[in-house]
Design a binder for these strands. Structure first.
Lengths: 314, 314
DNA sequence: TGGGTGTTATACCCTGGAGGTATGGATGAC
DNA sequence: GTCATCCATACCTCCAGGGTATAACACCCA
C-alpha cells in the first residue's frame, strides 16, 4: 500500500535500539511527543504493533525485531544509493576500483591497463584498502568495483570469479608435517593458525581449512573444535614471518608460496583444502555500462588462467 | 548527510521512466509543478544534475541513469521490508516456505517434519510456486524461505547449498548419442534443448551445459553459439515427454532420471556438466530465529547426503 | 501508603513545506 | 508567424510534522 518513509525507519531504529522514547528523541535531535506520534503512525499504517510499551518500559515485539534488522538493511541501501548517485554526478566521474595490496595488485594493474585502452572509458581510480574492507566499500557506495578473495560478506553485492588457485600449507621447515609429501586439512587441526583482525567465523573456518559445508546463519550453537588461535597478522609478509618463526601454520594460495621461497618455510600441498579464489564484485543490481565493461575486461583477461588453474585443482 | 526520502525516489523513478514531467505527474496523481519542484529539490540536495532538460525534451544524465537503476533496487527493498514486517506481526505468524512442485517436495516434507517437532516453532506454511518464482517470493517478502535450484537470481538473497547431484543427459533411446557410454557437454551442442518460459541467458546456458565461466553482467555482445531452442516446457513430466518424442535432449538431475525409467528415453552421464544443486535461501540480512533454525534443520538433515554426493561428483 | 522520579501519552499551537492553480516562456512543428 | 507542447515561476492553501506544557502511569523508597 503506501510506502514506508526513510524518516520513519530512522525514527524506528533509534527507538528500537534505545528502547526508550526520550533518549531516542534526544539522539534524533527532536522532542519526545512527535517521536511517539510518528511511531504510532507507523504502527497504524503497517497495521502492526512494533513495541510493547507501558509507561515504565518499552520492548520490541516479534514484528518489531523483524523491522529492526530489515530497516537497517534498507537504510544502508538508501544511503549507498545516494553516495553512488553523487559519485556518478561528480564533475570528473571516475571508476573507483578497490583491492587489497599484494596478490591482486599485479592482476589489477593488467586489467586497468587493458580497460583504459578501450574507447570512451572513464579514468580509473584505484583505492587500496586494508583488511577486507573491499566488500564494505562497494556496499556503501564508496567504490564501484572490488577485487577480493572469498570468503567475504556477499550481502548487497554481485560477483564473478576471476582466478582460482589451490592452497598449500606453509609450515616451519623443521615441523614434523614438513617431512610428509602431501597433507589433508585434518592434519592441521589443533595447530595454531594466524588470525586476521576482526575475522568472522566463516573466515576463521576458511583459513583453518574447516570451511566445507558449514553454515553461517544456522550455527545457533557455537561450532565445535574452534581452531587454536595463533598470533594476529595483517598482511601476508607478516604471516610468513610468523610461520617462519614457528609460531603458526597457515593455508595460503599457491602463488604466494611460489613468490616467497624461504629456507625457514616448507610449502606442502593440501589435497582437500578449498581453493583460493579471487572475484570481482559490483553493487547488486548495477548494470552501468562502465562497470559492466570493466567486469568483462577482467573476465576476458583471466579466462585462460582460470581454465589452467581449474585443471590444476581437479 | 540528509537521506533521500522514499517519496522522492518514487517521484524520480516516475519522471525517469516517462521522461516527461506532465505525464509522470499524472501517473503519480499529482500536478506537474510540485513534481518539478521535488525533483529540483532532490538535485539540489544531492548536488547532482539528474536530468538534462529544456522545455521540449527531458533526458537522463549519467548520474540520473545510476539513480534510476539504484532507486528501483531501493524501492523494492523498502516495500519488501514493509511486507515482511506486516507478516511478522500477523495475528498467527507463520513461517512461509516456498518450493516448486516435484523434486524438492519430498525433501521439503522431511525438513518440515523435523522442524515442527522442535520446541517453540511457528506453524509452517508451504507455498508451492511455479516457474522459478521462489526467489522472487523471498525477495519481495511474500515468503520467508525458499528451496530452489541454481542458477537463479541471487539478488537480495542469502543461501546455503543443501543437496548436490550430477546431471545426466536425457536422450531419445534411438538417438545416435545413446550408443555411447558417457558424454561431454560439447556433444550436446547444436541439439534442441527444452526451454523454460521466461528463462534468462544464464539459465539457458546452464540447461544447455554451457555455464562454465560465463558472466551475466559482462556480456555486452550477445554470446556466440546460442543453443538451438527446443519446445517450451513448464515441468519435468512435460520435459521427459518432449525428450521421449525425440524433439529435444536435456540435462537433468540424476534423481529425476532414477525416478523416471522409460523405454523411450536413455540416460547417459555427462562428465563435465556442472552439477544440479538445491539450495535454501532467505532474505539478505535476516537472522530471525525461526528462519535460522529452519535453515539449520535443513542443513543438518542434508549434511550426510551432501557429503555422499560430493564424493560422487569429484 | 504517599511522595518522588522517570517515562509515555494527550492537548494544543505553530510553522514549513508539500501540493494546487494560474500563467509565463521557451522550443519545435507546420 | 502561429500554434501546441511542456517546463518553470509565482503565489496561495492547508496539513502534517514538530514544539511546549502537562497529565497519566508505573515503580522505588521512605
Amino acid at each position: 500500500m503506501d510506502d514506508l518513509e526513510v524518516r520513519e525507519l530512522r525514527y524506528f531504529v533509534a527507538v528500537a535500539e534505545e528502547l526508550n522514547f526520550s533518549r531516542a528523541a534526544q539522539r534524533l535531535g527532536m522532542a519526545q511527543p512527535p517521536l511517539s506520534r510518528a511511531i504510532r503512525g507507523l504502527e497504524r499504517r503497517l497495521a502492526v504493533q512494533l513495541f510493547e510499551r507501558n509507561t515504565r518500559q518499552v520492548t520490541l515485539t516479534a514484528a518489531g525485531q523483524t523491522l529492526l534488522e530489515q530497516a537497517a538493511v534498507a537504510l544502508d541501501v538508501v544511503s549507498a544509493v545516494a553516495r553512488r548517485t553523487r559519485r556518478a554526478g561528480a564533475s570528473t566521474p571516475s571508476l573507483v576500483v578497490t583491492a587489497k595490496p599484494g596478490v591482486t595488485t599485479g592482476l589489477l594493474k593488467r586489467i586497468v591497463d587493458s580497460y583504459t585502452t578501450l574507447p570512451a572509458t572513464p579514468p580509473v581510480e584505484i583505492l587500496v584498502s586494508g583488511y577486507r574492507q573491499q566488500a564494505d566499500m562497494v556496499r556503501d557506495g564508496r567504490a564501484d568495483l572490488a577485487l577480493l578473495s572469498s570468503p567475504y560478506d556477499r550481502r548487497g553485492l554481485e560477483a564473478e570469479p576471476l582466478t582460482t588457485e589451490p592452497r598449500v600449507a606453509a609450515l616451519p621447515s623443521d615441523h614434523e608435517l614438513a617431512q610428509r609429501g602431501a597433507l589433508r586439512c585434518q592434519d592441521l587441526q589443533g595447530l595454531p593458525i594466524p588470525q586476521w583482525p576482526e575475522s568472522s567465523p566463516a573466515e576463521r573456518r576458511y583459513w583453518s581449512g574447516r570451511d566445507r559445508s558449514w553454515s553461517e546463519i544456522g550455527s545457533v550453537t557455537p561450532e565445535p573444535a574452534e581452531p587454536v588461535s595463533g598470533p594476529v597478522v595483517s598482511d601476508s609478509a607478516q604471516l610468513l614471518e610468523v610461520v617462519g618463526l614457528g609460531q603458526a601454520v597457515a593455508l595460503i594460495p599457491s602463488s604466494v608460496a611460489r613468490c616467497n621461497p624461504r629456507p625457514d618455510i616448507a610449502y606442502r600441498p593440501v589435497s582437500d583444502a578449498s581453493p583460493y579464489t579471487t572475484e570481482i564484485a559490483w553493487p547488486e543490481g548495477s548494470r552501468a555500462q562502465p562497470i559492466a565493461l570493466f567486469v568483462r575486461t577482467a573476465i576476458n583477461l583471466t579466462a585462460d588462467e582460470l581454465d589452467r588453474d581449474y585443471a590444476d585443482v581437479s
